[in-house]
Every structure is written in C-alpha cells, then in structure tokens.
C-alpha cells in the first residue's frame, strides 16, 4: 500500500494524473474513498497530479492515540508534501479537511498554492457562526441512532459519537449497519475505533487557527459552501475578511456537496482550479457550468 511515515504516524495515500499538484483532504470520520466514489479524483487527474490521503486515525492510515488538532494535521500534511516531493499544492478540503488545509496555508505556506474549501466550520470563527453544533446532518445521525435507543445530544459532539458506538451492543450495532446500508457501513465501523483517541475533542479545538491567523493567509481561497449549509455566516466572513477569497454556493447540497450534488461540485472545483492554475477549462468541456 502507498504510505508515508510522517512524524509519529503513517498515512495512506493514493495518487493519479500529472500536472500541477492538487491534494484532497477529507472530513472527520470520512476517508479518501469519498474522492474516489464521487469521481472527483478521476475528473481532476486529467490535468492535475492528484494526491488523496487518509488523515491520521482515518481509513487505512495509522491511528495514534493523540494529535488530532488541525495544527498537528497541518504538520502531517507538510511532512507528506515533503515525502512525496510535491510542488506547492492546491488543497481541496471538505469540512474539517478545509480547516486542516487553511492551517497548512498558515503554518507551511511554502507547501500551499491555494485552498478550495467545501463547507468548512472553523472553531476559530465560532463567535460569528450562529449555527455551530446545530448541523442538519448531526440531527439526522442523532435521529438514526435514536432508532436503536442511543441518544447523542442536540449539538455536534464527535467524542460522544465515538464513545457511544464503542459501548454499543453488537445487536444494536448490527441494526445500525442495516439502517446505514452497504455504503454507510464503512463510515459506521470507523467510529468506535476513534473512541480511544483524542480525535473527538481535538477536531473542535481552535488550535491556534484564530480569526486573525485566518485573515493573514495570503493564498487564493475558494469558499464553496452548500446551499443548505449551516455555515453560511462563515462563508460570508471568509469572503469579507480574507485577502484573496472567492465564494460560491453549491446548489442542492447540505454539507456533503461532493455526494449531494456531484456534478455541480466537481464542475466548480475544476473551474476554480483551472482559473487559479491557468489551465484551459475548455478541455474539460464543462467550464462555466455549475
């Protein structure tokens, strides 16, 4: 398996294509398969060298007990970038993956050419985000778990989600597997594995990525936020205060744009990357569409 040793852990990655470097960074509890199944990796590989990797603790990467803040994961990215010999890369980060990407832009600016965010919530912007903790997606997870008698609480609490799944009886877990179906089962099985780590608390920590640090990022940033995102205040703030930020709404999506509206999300990512890198969009046949 393609892996790199970074600091105290080991990261699994996949790479395809040739051209300017693009790195795909998934969300908490996800893994790089989301970029493969959504087709984004394939779509970008026509003109870019695309690297997708599993964050520590996720997918096929190693699962250390500690070190799940965006600061630590930005350092993981820096080391992965060096180990793979990448050029300054365009990072496409979904949700927490976007937080890691922006933290990497702040801490390792020489490794980053630009950032494309997908519906990210920043703990450092909690004060401007009225919908923190009230994500519709969390409510859906909460309702699903309630069907097997497990209460997760009103507001987003990854630590509780991990602990509850770890403590669940095999019968209840199997019921949940049946509810989530074949494609959701992998996601579900990952949750109890994170219960013995600091991931749940770490990912909601500001970890030094304050509003001022975000404002200081000079790289071009594209803020793709979902039409039904709970974080539209964040999108507005980024557009207003970042030195070089373009914002765009992905229609008919509610936090999982690459799956909710694959065509529009893929087209938007391609269009913005082509603009930033000077790659002719016509060759993709979808320039300007979204």
């Amino acid at each position: 398996m393609p892996e790199v040793e970074v600091g105290s852990t080991r990261l699994y990655y996949q790479q395809a294509g040739a051209g300017p470097d693009v790195v795909l960074v998934h969300a908490v509890t996800s893994n790089l398969a989301v970029w493969v199944f959504s087709g984004l990796m394939d779509a970008l590989a026509s003109h870019y060298r695309v690297t997708a990797y599993d964050l520590r603790g996720h997918g096929m990467s190693a699962r250390p007990a500690r070190g799940y803040t965006s600061a630590v994961m930005a350092e993981d990215f820096r080391q992965l970038h060096r180990a793979l010999g990448l050029k300054p890369a365009y990072l496409v980060g979904h949700s927490f993956g976007g937080v890691v990407s922006m933290h990497a832009a702040a801490l390792a600016p020489e490794c980053v050419a630009g950032v494309v965010l997908s519906d990210s919530f920043f703990p450092g912007l909690k004060h401007i985000e009225p919908n923190f903790g009230k994500m519709g997606l969390w409510q859906e997870v909460r309702q699903t778990f309630a069907r097997v008698g497990v209460e997760l609480g009103e507001t987003v609490d990854f630590g509780r989600l991990f602990r509850e799944t770890a403590a669940m009886s095999p019968e209840k877990f199997q019921q949940l597997e049946e509810i989530y179906g074949a494609f959701g089962r992998g996601w579900l099985r990952q949750l109890p594995l994170l219960a013995s780590t600091s991931c749940g608390d770490d990912v909601l920590a500001e970890a030094g990525l304050t509003a001022d640090v975000l404002r200081s990022i000079q790289h071009p940033v594209v803020a793709l936020y979902d039409e039904f995102s709970p974080f539209l205040a964040t999108a507005n703030w980024l557009q207003q205060y970042l030195p070089c930020c373009v914002a765009e709404i992905i229609p008919a999506a509610k936090h999982l744009a690459m799956l909710d509206n694959t065509a529009a999300f893929t087209a938007a990512v391609l269009r913005h990357l082509n603009r930033l890198t000077g790659t002719p969009g016509q060759s993709h046949g979808i320039a300007g569409s979204a």
Partner: peptide
C-alpha cells in the same frame, strides 16, 4: 457474492482492492 454484504468490505477497502 456481494463485496459489501457478503465479504464485509468497506468503501476504503475497495479502493485498496483496486490498487
């Protein structure tokens, strides 16, 4: 035979299998 239901593979394991 089904990859998910019968063999118990997950989506990330399918990526590894592809490799």
């Amino acid at each position: 035979t089904l990859l998910f239901a019968d063999l118990g593979l997950s989506s990330i394991e399918l990526v590894v299998l592809g490799e």
